[in-house]
Design a protein around this nucleic acid. Structure first.
Lengths: 118, 118
DNA sequence: TATGTGGATCGATGGCTGTCGATCTCGAGC
DNA sequence: GCTCGAGATCGACAGCCATCGATCCACATA
């Protein structure tokens, strides 16, 4: 949403120095903030962050059977983390016969990355 | 922790094509992943992300009395979010008389920013 | 068709999180 | 010293999350 500047502080104050200029507001709108926060949330777990790291550095599709033994959690938990990442659009998967291969969708990280780097 | 490569998949498989090469492992170690995930977690809320956005764009210290009316939540909630950000090292605060001023610590975002941008 | 394997899903559980109203703290001004 | 206001803290509550064991599903081989 567009921030209502009229809500800036205008309470009477103890006559001392003024609190501050009333011109601080987010440049990032609510909807954009929600998108970036959702991506950050998906990365807010060490295992998921390492999963993304593996997939990014590998630059290709990686089999789940190779991802699972890298972490000290059970197979359902890794599967759950991969689902979270896929729901956030950060990774996608592809089945080949018996195995499932995951890969990164780099564009999903772009918005947050640019905001962080600006 | 350093990932144990010996844990790579070596189960017998249905004699078909091999699953994949056993050389996928995180380049980011557990401890680093935990640090970056903690920062991501602090940014994983739209309000906190917008708070950081305000403080970054403002390039100075901003009074809490100016931050609070920007969001549709109560004052204790804004205070809570600021505390979360401060606990993550992303912002810091400074009291001046009756008011509290917050500012960003840019170095706290560097590690995650560089990883995302690489 | 029967069997085995990779991986997703289910249900449960304990812990964490965002939000609120109420209260507390502490500095400023009278 | 008293009062007032900015902001932090507390306690409660509801919803969400990471993890697990068990199960289910799809596919491949026999």
């Amino acid at each position: 949403m567009a921030v209502d500047l009229e809500l800036a502080p205008k309470q009477k104050r103890p006559a001392g120095e003024p609190c501050c200029k009333p011109v601080a507001y987010p440049e990032v709108e609510r909807q954009v903030a929600e998108r970036m926060a959702a991506v950050a949330k998906a990365l807010a777990d060490p295992i998921r962050l390492q999963l993304v790291d593996v997939l990014r550095k590998h630059a290709g599709k990686v089999c789940v059977c190779e991802l699972t033994p890298l972490f000290d959690v059970g197979q359902p938990t890794v599967s759950h983390h991969l689902k979270v990442l896929r729901s956030a659009g950060i990774v996608d998967s592809e089945r080949q016969g018996l195995w499932a291969y995951y890969y990164v969708r780099p564009e999903a990280l772009k918005e947050l990355s640019r905001w962080l780097g600006s």
